[in-house]
């Protein structure tokens, strides 16, 4: 950790300054997390009268539960689709905005505002557009001969939540790509142009490789986003259905814990998710360290 040369000394003031943050951290973060770990080794009887220690049994059951393994698969499909779709579209838009000189600030304004839309609201907007009876998209798809029904068809439900989540994330990725593009020295592109490289070749051999730190960073951030913040998108639209087709891991923790009241299993799922966040955070920070040195 970096330190300063000139500092103040006081036996009590720094603790007082840190007290509010640490108090909240302890009461609402560390204590509940500890409780989740503790609970994950316990099992309650069906009436909630007694609990007993069961060791790793909650975890073994979890990883033998086809529902849970399915939820892993659903989460993977969902995260990768949202990340690929929103990163791809954002890159296309950012490259275009970087090319136009006149009006690129206006385009930026018109593209960034969805960041401010709540995930739950984004979900409801797309759910409305995809409403099987009155929605505009099923009407158009019907014209093509496809009977859309996100309430019955698992694939349709997945497409719905992917589109809603990706739509909201484009603006974030767009801003980071645009910042990355504008940081590429103009002289590099000019040198390549003089050497006879056309726009496509320049993009493939110069611009995209120089953007790779940004792309990697966005990949991690987008996966974190789809794993946790999209809870609201799922809850406001499909509710994990139909037939568990959109029941991502973070939604299952809530469903099993709050609705199913299977506390031991829900706690074990929480612990697994904490492990995943730790890995993602670790990757993100390793990467930022590298970027600083680079």
């Amino acid at each position: 950790m970096q330190s300063r040369r000139a500092t103040y000394r006081s036996p009590w003031l720094p603790y007082l300054l840190l007290a509010p943050q640490l108090l909240i951290t302890f009461v609402f973060f560390l204590w509940p997390a500890g409780q989740a770990v503790r609970q994950s080794f316990l099992r309650e009887d069906p009436f909630g009268l007694s609990t007993r220690f069961v060791g790793l049994d909650n975890y073994t059951r979890l990883f033998h539960d086809p529902g849970y393994l399915n939820s892993f698969k659903v989460t993977l499909v969902f995260s990768v689709s949202v990340a690929a779709l929103s990163i791809g579209l954002a890159l296309l838009l950012a490259v275009s905005a970087d090319r136009v000189i006149r009006g690129h600030r206006g385009y930026t304004t018109l593209l960034v505002w969805p960041y401010a839309v709540a995930p739950a609201v984004a979900g409801v907007l797309w759910w409305f557009m995809f409403n099987p009876t009155i929605g505009i998209l099923p009407y158009l798809l019907g014209g093509l001969g496809y009977a859309w029904d996100d309430r019955l068809k698992p694939g349709d439900a997945m497409i719905l939540v992917v589109l809603a989540s990706a739509w909201k994330q484009i603006s974030y990725n767009f801003l980071f790509f645009l910042a990355g593009l504008q940081a590429i020295p103009q002289s590099l592109r000019e040198a390549a142009a003089i050497d006879g490289a056309g726009p496509v070749k320049r993009f493939v051999t110069i611009v995209f490789p120089l953007l790779s730190p940004t792309t990697f960073f966005l990949l991690v951030v987008n996966i974190t986003y789809t794993m946790f913040e999209t809870f609201a998108v799922i809850d406001a639209t499909t509710g994990g259905g139909p037939a568990q087709a959109t029941n991502i891991l973070v939604y299952k923790v809530y469903q099993d814990g709050f609705i199913g009241l299977n506390l031991g299993s829900s706690a074990a799922q929480s612990v697994v998710l904490m492990g995943i966040v730790m890995v993602l955070t670790f990757i993100q920070f390793r990467f930022i360290e590298r970027r600083v040195q680079y």
Binding site: M1, L18, Q21, L22, T25, F26, V27, F28, F29, L30, W31, P32, A33, Q35, A36, Q39, F228, E229, F231, V250, V253, Y254, G257, F258, L263, S266, A267, S270, L273, M274, V277, M278, T281
Partner: peptide, 24 residues
């Protein structure tokens, strides 16, 4: 203190929802 604060990054509310609800 620094690390305790850092740890909160790894505990999004969605992940520890049931025990946090109980505390509140």
């Amino acid at each position: 203190a620094f690390w305790l604060i850092f740890v909160t990054l790894m505990l999004p509310v969605e992940v520890r929802i049931v025990p946090t609800f109980k505390v509140v």
